[in-house]
Simulated scan of single mutants.
Amino acid sequence: MSIGNSPEDDRPSIGRALQQARIAAGLTVEEVSSSTRVRIPIVHAIEDDDFSRSGGDVYARGHIRMLARAVRLEPDPLIAQFDAEHGGRPAPTPAAPLFEAERIRSEPRRPNWTAAMVAAIVAVIGFVGFTLFNGDDDSGTAQVAEGSTPDKTTPEPTTTTKPADPKPVPSESAIAAAPRDKVTVKLSATERKSWISAKDHNGRQLFDGILLPGDSKTFQDNERVDLVLGDAGAIELFVNGKKVDDRFEPGQVERLSYTKGDPEVG
């Protein structure tokens, strides 16, 4: 007795479904990459059902969601199909602030009463000796004639130097004057926490951790800053002193790169 295929076996793969929808919408891979900011090699890989270039299951889900919306597909069934084929969505883990410096408190010093008593005794002995010595000297001093007053020297006029005005302390608003020969990126978490990753143009890690609500991070490089935002909708972004007005949705994963100059161009 033969068993027929289930409807799930007849459905196309995730990559095949995205490719068919893109072709039906009359879009090229370059146009989909430009509208979603998913790099062209990653779009090709996903359409070939190769999710290894996405950087993990979390980013793969985000890429599938953005590509599906770009080609006018409902993303939820594709996400469910991905979870079924890759072991399901991992359980969330409680986030903890990373790179938190441990504060070291110094132990309060106990007063040294012995040293204080010795110092007091020495001060008393010195004062008594000084008084007796001055009393003996007064008996041999000449008396000043009545009515005469010692000459008073005119004090030289003193000049006061006006202290220099203190230099202003740089604040977060100083990013508005970002140097033109560098790229400066500032991230601020608004209402929710978000995992972020930042690298310089050499691929060196600048930061990899959780940005809590109200926290900010500023990164600077001579050529380029590469970002990965785990929840782009929770991040307010300033690049080279200019606010980036992109409206990211909550939970949306974004990979961004910025260079010197206008962030719309970088």
Results as ranks from 00 to 15, higher is better:
residue 206 L to H: 04
residue 190 T to F: 07
residue 204 R to K: 15
residue 208 D to V: 08
residue 171 S to L: 08
residue 235 I to F: 06
residue 226 D to N: 11
residue 250 P to R: 07
residue 133 F to I: 10
residue 138 D to V: 14
residue 202 N to R: 09
residue 232 A to I: 11
residue 186 K to F: 13
residue 165 D to P: 06
residue 176 A to D: 14
residue 154 T to K: 14
residue 118 V to N: 12
residue 252 Q to E: 14
residue 170 P to L: 04
residue 186 K to V: 10
residue 199 K to H: 14
residue 175 I to Q: 09
residue 223 E to M: 03
residue 203 G to I: 03
residue 243 K to V: 06
residue 196 I to R: 00
residue 219 F to N: 07
residue 236 E to C: 02
residue 237 L to M: 05
residue 128 V to A: 14
residue 223 E to R: 12
residue 202 N to I: 02
residue 202 N to E: 07
residue 131 T to M: 11
residue 140 G to S: 10
residue 156 E to Y: 11
residue 138 D to P: 07
residue 199 K to F: 15
residue 146 E to P: 11
residue 179 P to N: 14
residue 215 D to F: 06
residue 123 A to Q: 02
residue 199 K to V: 12
residue 164 A to E: 08
residue 199 K to Q: 15
residue 166 P to N: 00
residue 222 N to R: 05
residue 243 K to L: 01
residue 115 A to V: 04
residue 241 G to T: 04
residue 115 A to N: 03
residue 137 D to S: 12
residue 223 E to L: 07
residue 140 G to I: 07
residue 198 A to L: 07
residue 244 V to G: 01
residue 216 S to K: 10
residue 139 S to C: 11
residue 127 F to M: 15
residue 148 S to Q: 14
residue 195 W to H: 07
residue 230 G to Q: 02
residue 226 D to H: 08
residue 174 A to M: 12
residue 217 K to A: 05
residue 201 H to V: 08
residue 209 G to F: 06
residue 137 D to N: 09
residue 170 P to N: 02
residue 143 Q to G: 10
residue 229 L to C: 10
residue 122 V to M: 15
residue 139 S to P: 11
residue 244 V to R: 01
residue 139 S to N: 15
residue 182 K to C: 02
residue 219 F to L: 05
residue 175 I to R: 04
residue 239 V to D: 04
residue 216 S to L: 06
residue 122 V to H: 10
residue 186 K to M: 13
residue 236 E to A: 11
residue 135 G to Q: 12
residue 179 P to I: 08
residue 195 W to M: 04
residue 237 L to W: 00
residue 220 Q to P: 08
residue 250 P to S: 04
residue 161 T to G: 00
residue 209 G to W: 01
residue 196 I to K: 04
residue 236 E to T: 08
residue 244 V to E: 00
residue 256 L to R: 04
residue 174 A to K: 10
residue 165 D to T: 13
residue 157 P to C: 11
residue 251 G to K: 02
residue 152 K to R: 12
residue 237 L to P: 00
residue 146 E to R: 10
residue 117 M to A: 13
residue 193 K to T: 03
residue 193 K to V: 04
residue 130 F to G: 15
residue 165 D to C: 04
residue 161 T to R: 06
residue 146 E to K: 09
residue 120 A to G: 14
residue 193 K to S: 11
residue 141 T to L: 14
residue 227 L to D: 01
residue 251 G to F: 07
residue 173 S to G: 09
residue 243 K to P: 04
residue 163 P to N: 04
residue 136 D to P: 03
residue 191 E to S: 07
residue 179 P to C: 10
residue 195 W to R: 08
residue 237 L to A: 01
residue 156 E to Q: 15
residue 139 S to R: 13
residue 243 K to C: 00
residue 190 T to Y: 07
residue 175 I to M: 11
residue 243 K to N: 07
residue 235 I to D: 04
residue 225 V to A: 02
residue 214 G to F: 09
residue 255 R to T: 02
residue 168 P to H: 02
residue 131 T to W: 14
residue 208 D to K: 05
residue 247 R to T: 05
residue 240 N to E: 06
residue 159 T to G: 08
residue 177 A to V: 10
residue 206 L to T: 06
residue 120 A to M: 12
residue 122 V to N: 13
residue 253 V to C: 01
residue 251 G to I: 06
residue 200 D to T: 08
residue 212 L to N: 12
residue 178 A to I: 11
residue 216 S to Y: 11
residue 185 V to G: 00
residue 206 L to N: 01
residue 218 T to V: 07
